[in-house]
Design a protein around this nucleic acid. Structure first.
Length: 120
DNA sequence: AACTTGACGAGGG
DNA sequence: CCCCTCGCCAAGT
């Protein structure tokens, strides 16, 4: 499927998100990048807001390392709090260090040495 | 069928 | 470093 004809496109996003381990995060753009095809960060975000309960939506943040939930469906501090409970540290600006917490699924490697070092 | 909005991202000022 | 603009794709009105 190279197109969004099946409406199965949602599950592709969810499937990736479900694989994010606790204490790690992914960005909308990154997911869109993996899905490639006709996905964009916008689309991923749109799909994400309708995520089912079995999807750890809180582990998906924006490229700035901050929560973008705004005041729409969920308060930002809620998502941030959930992540903090998983061990993700945020600064005063509400950003976390993507170099530490960003997670890459198997088969997907960043060109840079942006791979997370993970404190342990 | 067209316009607007939205859990985004990158670039320019 | 903060603010604004443009690009992207899907859904609601």
């Amino acid at each position: 499927m190279n197109r969004v004809d099946d409406k199965n496109y949602r599950e592709r996003v969810y499937e990736i998100v479900r694989q994010i381990p606790s204490g790690r995060v992914m960005t909308y753009g990154q997911i869109a990048e993996i899905l490639g095809e006709g996905y964009t960060p916008r689309t991923v975000g749109y799909v994400m807001h309708g995520a089912a309960e079995n999807v750890p939506w809180q582990r998906v943040i924006n490229s700035q390392g901050a929560c973008s939930t705004g005041k729409m469906t969920m308060p930002v501090n809620l998502q941030q709090g959930m992540l903090e409970s998983e061990g993700v540290a945020f600064n005063e600006k509400g950003n976390c260090d993507l170099n530490v917490y960003l997670w890459f699924p198997e088969g997907f490697e960043p060109d840079d040495d942006t791979q997370p070092s993970l404190l342990g």
